[in-house]
């Protein structure tokens, strides 16, 4: 006999469960966790190098590097003098919460207060998988074109902060910043935006200042709740 079974089960429930566990681990350790998402070549790793170079208290930072096959990015970040854990997804297009949880076992969480997770280069899939992070940072370069927000709305909707990179190339490009930002804010009116150049260093100080603020908020939040 044919019958119907009602289920209503979230497809991502397994990931959501582990991401909640990760969130608790971050909270217990007063650790601000950021999930960086952007296309291959957007400048995520270079941005990360710039951020780390501009932070004075570098000892308390660790990075989780997501990459499909190589350890190239991890080697670059390690050279900046912070702890790095490499996750190779072996073909997978995104990091998920269990991968991050396993990576955490390689870090001395007590000693850290900022964890930056660089996701696999991809503007689509990583947006769907929460890792337990405090917020998502979307990194997009102007050479990708000003029409992208509407083509990849999910990530622009989910992110708390947008970093627009390669602005030193604006003079060689047809990228219309006003049009782009209007489209971004139509999808996510509250998103924080930084325009930077990894090459010239423009905008990096402002971004790092904002990140330090977020780091302090997280510390204070924990002190209040204890």
């Amino acid at each position: 006999m044919v019958k119907e079974i009602k289920l209503v089960q979230n497809v991502l429930k397994a990931n959501e469960r582990v991401s909640e566990q990760n969130r608790n681990i971050f909270a217990e350790n007063q650790l601000l966790a950021i999930n960086i998402i952007g296309s291959p070549g957007a400048g995520k790793t270079t941005l990360l190098e710039r951020i780390i170079q501009n932070i004075v208290e570098r000892k308390a930072i660790a990075v989780i590097e997501g990459d499909i096959y190589t350890t190239r990015d991890a080697q670059r970040i390690e050279a900046c003098g912070v702890d790095v854990v490499q996750i190779n997804t072996g073909g997978g297009c995104h990091l998920d919460a269990p991968m991050v949880q396993e990576a955490l076992t390689n870090l001395d969480l007590d000693e850290l207060d900022l964890l930056i997770i660089e996701n696999v280069g991809n503007l689509v899939c990583p947006a769907a998988y929460n890792l337990g992070e405090d917020f998502k940072m979307v990194v997009m370069s102007i050479t990708e074109g000003d029409d992208k927000p509407e083509k990849y709305p999910r990530i622009f909707q989910e992110a708390k902060v947008l970093v627009v990179t390669k602005v030193d190339l604006l003079k060689y490009n047809q990228f219309d910043m006003d049009r782009f930002l209007a489209e971004v804010r139509g999808i996510n009116p509250g998103i924080k935006v930084f325009q930077i150049s990894n090459l010239t260093g423009d905008g990096i100080k402002e971004l790092v200042g904002w990140l330090e603020e977020q780091r302090n908020y997280k510390r204070e939040e924990q002190i209040c709740s204890v």
Partner: peptide
Amino acid sequence: YRVFCPLCGNVGQIVSGKELYVESLEVND
């Protein structure tokens, strides 16, 4: 994907569109 209210222009709350779930199974017992 615009969140603005077409009547007043304020930012609205997303109430549907993020679903991703298995609703039901039709089975043969």
